[in-house]
């Protein structure tokens, strides 16, 4: 009845349509059992390789950089390399001490219960902005919990395996945070823009928003506690028509250098989150 060519074309069209329908269904459900299984299998390898890389990096920093110095100072080679190696080790320890104290001080300023976690992997593509952290269900992490660093908020837990979790960063296109402009209390919805920046949506034209204004969480989304810093306004465009103004926000957090994060475990306030995300 139909030629082979027609059958192939119809088959292709059916496959493409089925594919798009399947993707639009899965895009409505950000978390999957399959995704968790994938994290469960891959994250231990990521953890091991990530730790090995950090170890190699420290060897590189502490030892190999000193080789040229040691060559120039043959007479003092042994003493000098030992001294510098020890010095570098102390410096690394000091830096990590400062960083952890910084985290600890930040932890004290938070009234909520928090848990520190290390970043062990990043998203396979620059199209999406997620990270994998080394804390999971066993540590009390739940889906939907907010993730912060001393500089500001980082994102939200979207998938949890036993000992690892996936965090959707605020710069991802799928992320939304209810926010306020700190100076004028203008409200808006902060969305990721896939370029390391965020866009403040639905900020009314009549609201006073200028460059360098600080944007903070409003607490109205039921995920992030109120008043946490997010970023500063880097560009404001008010068009002649339209209800809203276009506002670009640069996050305070440098997501390229994210090494440790804190997950807020305020279970009393966030009990609804797990079900919200499921829905």
């Amino acid at each position: 009845m139909f030629s082979k060519k027609t059958v192939v074309i119809i088959g292709l069209i059916i496959m493409i349509v089925a594919n798009i329908v399947a993707l639009s269904i899965t895009s409505r459900y950000p978390s999957h059992e399959y995704g968790r299984l994938s994290i469960f299998i891959m994250a231990p390898f990521q953890d091991a390789i990530s730790n090995s890389l950090k170890f190699l990096e420290s060897i590189w920093d502490n030892y190999f950089n000193l080789i040229s110095v040691a060559k120039e100072n043959k007479m003092l080679k042994k003493e000098l390399s030992n001294a510098i190696e020890r010095n570098n080790f102390c410096y690394e320890a000091e830096l990590s001490n400062i960083r952890l104290r910084h985290l600890l001080n930040f932890k004290k300023t938070l009234t909520d219960e928090v848990i520190a976690a290390e970043v062990i992997g990043k998203d396979p593509s620059a199209w999406f902005q997620t990270i994998i952290i080394d804390k999971g269900n066993a540590d009390g992490i739940l889906r939907g919990l907010p993730v912060v660093v001393p500089d500001g908020i980082a994102g939200q837990v979207t998938d949890v395996a036993a000992h690892y979790s996936k965090v959707l960063l605020i710069t991802d296109g799928n992320s939304s945070v209810d926010t306020l402009v700190q100076r004028t209390r203008a409200r808006g919805l902060l969305q990721g823009a896939r370029s390391g920046l965020c866009i403040l949506k639905y900020a009314l034209r009549k609201e006073d928003v200028i460059s360098r204004d600080t944007v903070v969480t409003s607490g109205l989304d039921g995920v992030f506690p109120k008043g946490l810093r997010i970023g500063y306004v880097s560009k404001v465009i008010k068009r002649n028509s339209g209800l809203f103004q276009e506002v670009d926000v640069t996050p305070y957090v440098d997501f390229e250098k994210l090494e440790e994060v804190m997950v807020i475990l305020n279970k009393t306030n966030l009990t609804g989150i797990e079900t919200d995300v499921k829905d």
Binding site: L23, Y34, G35, L37, G121, P124, F128, Q129, D159, K166
Partner: peptide, 12 residues
């Protein structure tokens, strides 16, 4: 399957 699980995009 593995890359979908680790990525932030829609599963699949």
């Amino acid at each position: 399957f593995f890359i979908d699980g680790l990525s932030g995009g829609s599963f699949g």
